[in-house]
Design a protein around this nucleic acid. Structure first.
Length: 221
DNA sequence: CGCCAAATAT
DNA sequence: CATATTTGGC
């Protein structure tokens, strides 16, 4: 939200931040800085692969070695890491082993990634081909047949606070970056994304990009 | 049931 | 490593 002065208003509660005019480029810089930092922190926080054996109590973890299914769907962090790795390598050169190494997640094995990559490629292939072969009537693919999207550049480049991984992924620009719409939407809409830093009293809630703001918060600096 | 993500077999 | 098939949750 933006205003002429710093007069407070109830409506500010709906905003993630409040900017006073005139527009200062640093506002935007700081916003991206915060988003990048938060996202990076989240990704780094992944040290454990989500297991589907949730039914059983978390206490019996000795059976961990067995039924450890990796749930990509419920883990935006894994998806993000996967996407970053794939784009860093380039969609053509991305192979299970390399992806796994780049992701560097404890407990995540090449076979897991390979399986995921297979589905990823399948989706990607179907989407891009349907784009070509099916011009069709215009109203159709609003829901299921998601098309892949291409993101040329998603973030500003020059912030040192941005983590090296992010900078690397960005600056390397194996352009254009090819994302899987399915995964991207999961990442962007998941509530754990874009979380604020609880250690600061300012940041009470997260903000959910592309979604209705049920809550509100502020960001760093 | 059917669908589909994830695992497993080829 | 790629591709095909099976498994298992929902």
């Amino acid at each position: 939200m933006m205003g002429v002065d710093d007069t407070t208003s109830e409506r500010m509660n709906e905003a993630c931040d409040y900017w006073t005019k005139p527009l200062n480029p640093n506002y935007i810089k700081n916003m991206w800085q915060h988003v990048a930092k938060v996202q990076h922190d989240q990704i780094e926080r992944v040290s454990e692969v989500v297991k589907t054996g949730q039914k059983r109590k978390k206490r019996d973890e000795e059976s961990e070695t067995k039924n450890n299914r990796v749930s990509w769907v419920s883990s935006p962090e894994l998806q993000a890491k996967f996407l970053i790795a794939v784009n860093q390598l380039g969609i053509e050169k991305a192979t299970p082993k390399k992806i796994t190494e780049l992701m560097d997640v404890r407990g995540l094995e090449t076979s897991h990634v390979a399986s995921h990559l297979q589905k990823f490629r399948l989706r990607h292939f179907n989407c891009s081909s349907s784009k070509k072969t099916k011009p069709k009537s215009g109203r159709e693919n609003s829901n299921v047949p998601h098309e892949s999207i291409q993101v040329v550049e998603s973030m500003p480049k020059q912030d040192k606070k941005c983590d090296s991984n992010f900078l690397h992924a960005q600056q390397q620009h194996p352009i254009p970056m090819v994302f899987d719409d399915f995964e991207v939407s999961n990442i962007l809409t998941n509530k754990t994304n874009m979380m604020v830093d609880v250690s600061s009293s300012l940041y009470e809630q997260a903000w959910y990009p592309f979604e209705e703001l049920g809550t509100f918060g502020h960001y760093f600096d």
